[in-house]
Simulated assay, not measured.
Amino acid sequence: MVIPLKHVAISTQDPEASRDFFANVMGWTVAGRVDSRNAQGYYVTDGTINIALLRFKNRPAAGLEFPEGYNGLHHLGFQCEDVEATAEYMEEQGFPPRHDINIAQGLGKNPDKDNAEYKMTGPASVMIDISERGWVGTSSYKPKAG
């Protein structure tokens, strides 16, 4: 089974400066803005990969392992055909769901939600997102119907 990487999230205390770096220096497109109860920031893309540049508003949503004011890699996102089956497979391999973050962010195995993701434990303390829809700005993104 090959599950392609389509998303990276970077925790930053200055999402605007990070957005400007990707847009002005790297030539990427700003694909969206995030301003929820959990995070503020931007999505940027080169058409293949989506990077979320996020300033988390609370530690439960970020994950309690991340200190207040953390800057750096937060998680990697992989697009799959079936979130339920992929989550089950990953858990069988010893990488269980991150229920703490899924609950804090209101996430779930919900393919009807735009940019829906499901957080899983990953190797080397790097969190993993799995998503059926994918991420805005990528060629494999499947927007919500209607």
Results as ranks from 00 to 15, higher is better:
Gly122Asn: 01
Glu68Lys: 03
Val83Pro: 12
Leu53Val: 01
Ile49Phe: 06
Gly134His: 09
Asp112Gly: 13
Leu54Phe: 07
Leu76Phe: 03
Trp135Ile: 01
Met90Leu: 12
Ala52His: 02
Gln79His: 05
Ile130Phe: 04
Ala52Tyr: 03
Val136Asn: 11
Thr86Trp: 04
Asn102Cys: 10
Asp82Thr: 08
Pro111Ser: 13
Gly47Thr: 06
Pro97Val: 13
Phe95Arg: 09
His75Ser: 08
Asn50Ser: 14
Pro123Arg: 05
Asn71Asp: 06
Tyr141Ala: 12
Pro111Asn: 13
Leu73Ala: 07
Gly108Asn: 05
Gly106Asp: 06
Met120Lys: 00
Met120Phe: 00
Leu107Ile: 11
Asn58Ile: 00
Ala87Glu: 07
Tyr43Gln: 12
Leu107Phe: 15
Ser140Lys: 12
Tyr141Pro: 14
Gly122Ala: 01
His74Lys: 04
Ala104Leu: 04
Gly134Asp: 13
Glu88Lys: 12
Gly72Met: 00
Phe78Ile: 03
Phe78His: 03
Ile128Pro: 04
Glu92Tyr: 11
Tyr141Lys: 10
Gly69Tyr: 00
Asn102Leu: 07
Ile49Glu: 02
Arg98Thr: 10
Thr45Ser: 14
Glu84Lys: 15
Tyr43Asp: 13
Cys80Arg: 05
Lys109Leu: 15
Asp100Tyr: 08
Asp112Asn: 14
Glu65Ile: 08
Leu73Gln: 06
Met90Asn: 04
His74Gln: 07
Gly108Trp: 01
Ala87Arg: 09
Met127Thr: 10
Ala124Lys: 08
Ala116Lys: 04
Gly63Gln: 07
Leu76Gly: 01
Glu65Trp: 04
Asn115Tyr: 09
Ile103Glu: 14
Gly137Trp: 07
Glu132Cys: 14
Ala116Tyr: 03
Leu64Trp: 10
Ala85Lys: 11
Glu88Gly: 14
Met90Ile: 00
Pro123Gly: 11
His74Ile: 02
Ser140Pro: 12
Ile130Thr: 06
Tyr141His: 14
Leu76Thr: 00
Cys80Phe: 02
Asp114Lys: 11
His74Cys: 04
Val83Tyr: 02
Asn71Thr: 07
Tyr118His: 12
Tyr43Thr: 09
Ser139Asp: 15
Asn115Met: 14
Val136Asp: 10
Asp100Gly: 12
Ala104Phe: 03
Ile51Met: 05
Gly137Asn: 09
Lys119Tyr: 13
Ala61Cys: 04
Gly134Ala: 10
Pro111Ala: 13
Pro111Val: 10
Tyr141Asn: 13
Thr48Leu: 12
Phe78Met: 05
Phe95Ile: 09
Trp135His: 09
His74Thr: 01
Pro60Lys: 02
Phe56Glu: 03
Asn115Ile: 14
Asn102Gly: 11
Phe66Leu: 03
Met90Tyr: 10
Ile51Trp: 02
Leu53Met: 04
Glu84Gly: 15
Gly108Ile: 01
Ser131Cys: 08
Glu91His: 06
Lys113Cys: 13
Tyr89Asp: 14
